[in-house]
Nucleic acid binder design. Structure first.
Lengths: 230, 230
DNA sequence: GCATATTTGTCCGTATGTATA
DNA sequence: CTATACATACGGACAAATATG
């Protein structure tokens, strides 16, 4: 932070917020900020996002902010109601069912091949497990969830498809919205660390079919627990 | 649904004109117009969409138009290049491969169950076949393609998932971009009318596994022919 | 149910930065 | 390198819809 402050500080002073290094538009950066706030639960489901208030808070014009809103609405993180504004999405039990229907389709498919998972494929899986273990040891429940999702993102990535990666990323972002209407979102993920570890172990030993079955069990269990909370 | 109908049903009846009678915003209507133009090939891959020219042509302000562009860029139909504008997307051979990777994942999955396809599920499939046959008989090649895609959209819909429907719709829209860089897009679809008919026949007879295999053959064949054209 | 205040939807003008002929 | 065209972003305006007292 201190090291970067020198570099970006000068550029930021000269070129406003848009530095030469940062090749993204204000619209995209604002969308990124809001996306993060929503995913972290700082902006809670059902909450209205006021153009005036948020535009003022972030120091951007209404027009710019509205473009960001359009991006987020396309990601299903917010809903846009005509003449009423945008609201953080509130998911229904049917949404949960549907999200898991797609997860059960996409994630196991990544393990359908007969060839063992490559070392490059395993690395992000191990990293996610390690991050989850650390977060759990330090009692950071929310971070356990984040690492957990990174594990499953990495699982889907084994399919080697850019579009599947995108689909999976959006599914997991939506799923975050579910956690934020639960009582104790932090506790939800804890039990799954071991199950993910088991899946990873099976993958390392090349037992793809068992890994696939363990994954299916995991998904069925997680879905059932989420639905029970609704 | 029925339990909530008392609360939301009344409200929906009063305020629901929004979703039924009409009333999408200008932004969405403009996006819809552009989406159609792109899908039909009137706006060709690589073409730049000038804010000024299109805004003037459609009679909307640049701010409104830019919001529409954001939606389309999120659908991958256009690419947004910073400070250069938006362009109709041009797909690569890798894109084709990736699109079919996802198709091969999603479409056969809709036939994975053991239960025969319901009558409601078969109806849109038959309608699509009939539309394709009509278009073929009248030499409307482009419409054969449209009907063909509707058939596969209906196939994916058998999964009963709103999100899969959306994913499929976007995949097929992207795929249209591929056809528009080919020499004779109209001719591409003609041979597949019979194959779709075959799939439908197998589904009607409840032979799901054979239908699934025929579908996989279809997809492999279509992918190969598209890649050959690249 | 009404009158008022607030907020969104849309358009316009403009200043600045960026890309390109 | 300059000139030109264009995108980016801002702020103001006003009508229309919605929320509030």
């Amino acid at each position: 932070m201190t090291a970067r402050a020198d570099d970006t500080g000068v550029l930021a002073a000269l070129a406003g917020d848009r530095s030469l290094l940062n090749r993204s538009s204000t619209v995209e950066r604002v969308a990124e900020i809001l996306r993060e706030r929503i995913i972290e639960g700082l902006l809670r489901p059902g909450e209205r996002l006021s153009e005036d208030a948020i535009g003022r808070a972030l120091g951007v014009s209404r027009n710019t902010l509205r473009e960001s809103f359009r991006l987020l609405s396309h990601e299903r993180l917010v809903v846009h109601e005509l003449n009423r504004g945008v609201f953080v999405r509130t998911l229904s039990a049917e949404d949960v069912t549907d999200l898991y229907r797609v997860r059960k389709l996409i994630e196991p498919a990544a393990l359908d091949g007969d060839v063992p998972v490559s070392e490059e494929g395993l690395r992000p899986l191990r990293a996610a497990i390690a991050a989850a273990a650390n977060a759990a040891a330090e009692g950071r429940g929310a971070d356990v969830g984040t690492a957990n999702m990174r594990f499953h993102q990495a699982l889907a990535a084994l399919a080697g498809s850019a579009r599947i990666d995108t689909i999976m990323r959006q599914l997991l972002a939506e799923l975050r919205l579910v956690f934020h209407v639960m009582d104790r979102p932090g506790e939800f993920h804890a039990p799954y660390l071991d199950r993910n570890r088991e899946i990873l172990g099976l993958l390392e030993r090349g037992e793809l079919q068992q890994a696939r079955q363990a994954l299916l069990d995991y998904l069925a269990d997680a879905e059932a627990r989420l639905l029970a909370a609704y």
